[in-house]
Write a protein that binds this DNA or RNA. Structure first.
Lengths: 253, 253
DNA sequence: TAGCCTTATAGTCATTTTGACTACAAGCGT
DNA sequence: ACGCTTGTAGTCAAAATGACTATAAGGCTA
């Protein structure tokens, strides 16, 4: 599970470098696109709390304030690569499945000059990461989406949009599994849905519905060291899902 | 219905203006963002053929070739406003409900220099528009999505993505109505779904499902001048939809 | 060790929804 | 008047859903 709580244990970074050319309308590192940035919205699950990954800005405008981990795109870099690099540099989170969320471009969303930002998002499992604040972040941490600090620019708007998007997406695509460890119990899956959809579900009915889809393969293993009857572990079977999808199956919860 | 056929009747434009500053790495009109553009993907329905709105480029790179109607964003202009202005200027189509589709930014998607483009899309009803090619387009026309001319840059990729997106969206949100005239018959609605989902649906079952949602209000009017029994006309009731949505209803076909 | 938690998992049952059909109605056109 | 085409209503078995009940497995505690 995610180690940090709301007022989080975070990782401090040693020092901050500030690059940029003088006498420009706005200071920018060399070799990056002007007027275009990336922001990453990374969701994680801590028990049954949905969390989002934030950094404390270590350079540029609004240093010291909390923000989505993002930054500038290199001239010769594809968008998703930029998102991935920035995320990894700022937080240490590597190789999540980043998909594009939406581009935010209100004229005055960014001070100093017009900057349009492309938001990417990903769901990551607690297994898959450890936080290490990077070059231009002084801290990185996970925050309960219901208890957020104040964020720079329009990052609250991006986050709200992302949560709504996630609620939609999770009902029609099997993306929720990305938030869980590889092997999980049916109750974990159910609690995930309850956390994101923000409502209770009936346990027997939920498991019946999920099992009927045939998307889970039985690990033939039980939970360890729980103070009650141990539940069976399952993993999501991507191959079966792809096969069914080609046959016209659509995932619905 | 849409007047033009595949090899379309199109609208010619008188002349083409080319604006831009000399000695720049790439000629661009004044007052626009560098490196960022908009492209619009506009779908229309002609009987039961899904069509897309294209223009023949009248200026800039690739003049004379077919493309999605798009262009540059003004410095002080919000993104959707830019999309709307460009669409209107290039084709005469006014005030469709434009939503953002995706941002395309492969390093070499555009020749000469790096340009990232934000794709918007909209569904328009045959009632709502008449084509008038504008300043920087020499022709505008509707094309059957199965019989397209070759398109500039990565516009084929944008279109393919848009069609897939539409197929997803139309199943989970009542957006299909936007492609129909205000008053329509159940068969028109069904044919729309058949055209977009690319499969046949059972007539009695389709109408039963739609009617049970209570989203259509009866116009108490019949079709006119058809060579068979006239069907009842309905309109989509947005207010009921919003009410139901708040109660947790979700549209599914 | 017996009984008490807690969670897992199987199953019941009435109601609703689906998918595959059949049947009949209403007009136009010959 | 008959047939052709499309509209609209209804049947029926199968499947899915929602609200439950019942029982199984453990660890924990008195």
């Amino acid at each position: 599970m995610i180690k940090t709580t709301t007022t989080n244990k975070t990782i401090k970074v040693s020092e901050v470098t500030s690059v940029g050319t003088a006498n420009e309308p706005f200071e920018l590192p060399d070799g990056v696109l002007r007027g275009l940035s990336i922001d990453n919205l990374i969701f994680g699950l801590d028990g049954s709390e949905l969390k989002v990954l934030l950094i404390k800005r270590g350079e540029g405008i609004k240093t010291g304030e909390w923000a989505l981990p993002g930054g500038w795109i290199n001239n010769n870099e594809n968008l998703r690569d930029a998102a991935s690099r920035l995320l990894s540099d700022l937080t240490g989170v590597e190789h999540p499945y980043l998909s594009q969320l939406k581009t935010f471009g209100k004229v005055s969303r960014f001070p100093a000059e017009r900057v349009v930002t492309i938001a990417y998002y990903a769901l990551v499992s607690a297994d898959d990461y450890a936080l290490t604040a990077g070059f231009s972040a002084s801290e990185a941490g996970w925050f309960d989406i219901h208890h957020l600090p104040s964020l720079v620019f329009d990052h609250h708007e991006i986050l709200d949009y992302g949560i709504k998007h996630l609620q939609q997406e999770i009902r029609h695509h099997p993306v929720g599994f990305k938030l869980l460890p590889e092997k999980f119990t049916l109750l974990q899956l159910q609690e995930l849905y309850e956390a994101i959809l923000d409502k209770k579900l009936d346990k027997p009915n939920f498991r019946r519905k999920i099992m009927k889809m045939k998307l889970l393969s039985d690990c033939n293993e039980k939970q360890q060291s729980v103070a009650h009857r141990a539940a069976n572990l399952y993993r999501f079977d991507k191959k079966v899902y792809q096969r069914l999808t080609q046959q016209g199956f659509t995932f619905e919860v």
